[in-house]
Amino acid sequence: MPERRLMLLAALLTAASAFFLFWGLKGPVGFILELRATKLAALLVVGVALGTSTVVFQTITGNRILTPAIMGFDALFLLMQTVLVFLLGGIGYATLPGGAKFLLETLVMMGAAMLLFALLMGRGRQDMHRMLLVGVIFGVLFRSLTAFLQRIIDPSEFAVVQGAMFASFGAVDPLQLAIAGAVTVLALAVLWRIAGELDVVALGRNAAIGLGLPFDRLVLGLLALVAALVSVSTALVGPITFLGLLVAALAHGIMRTHRHAFLLPAAGMLAALVLVAGQSLFERVLRMQSTLSVIVEFLGGLFFLYLVLRGRIR
């Protein structure tokens, strides 16, 4: 029963969140709670955004081993930071208004995703793998350009950019968090409304068009949503590649249904659960600071290999 499993997940997530908030509470309680609540909110937003966007992306591409993170969004994000530093200098970059910058970043990333897709659709090729590969290589191009620019800018200003290279849940700007939360909620609302259409999209382009769905238009919109979700999480905490892959596979495995009305919340909650529980473990129990993202990346990668070797790549 998918409903029961969803309830269970929700209960687990609530418990993990409570643990994260209240475990080992000492000193100025109010201050610490506020700090932890901000962090928790960031973890939840990022988790939900990554989990749902990966499921949607896999549905669009008809493939269970891909994640939107390989499409080079994270690289574009880093390139934008570098270009901003390059143009404005380190001080100019640091004094940019946070909210506007964040919105701008999100918009540019959505635009890039749509452009990429339109470029390939416009040439009359509905060749999903080609599109993905082009996305990946754009990512490599962006990364190389970033490295190139970093060599050209002043070494002291280079340090500013380097801070954004690794995902960090340490310091999150409340304003950015609020915007990110709003974008995520909006995207989720849209996805929720079209969960039924997503079930049909999963059948593939030919079947979907045969069933009367405006497939190309729908996919374009969905990709924009995916781009929004990915850029929100990247802009908030930096690049995370394999988490989405991990939770999407888990969501499919646990829910054992094709219905996105169940898959999407499951994936979102699973990702949030992994992040909250992982962060609790690292921060409270193991007392390590910023290695969670590295561990998640590594485990997610191993899991991907397992998927391919089991032959579960459809």
Binding site: I70, H129, F298
Partner: peptide, 18 residues
């Protein structure tokens, strides 16, 4: 054929992550 480089890139990403 285009799945091959995709999987290769992810595979190298994993080893790189390690």
């Amino acid at each position: 054929p285009l799945l091959v480089p995709l999987v290769g890139l992810i595979y190298s990403g994993i080893i790189g992550a390690g």
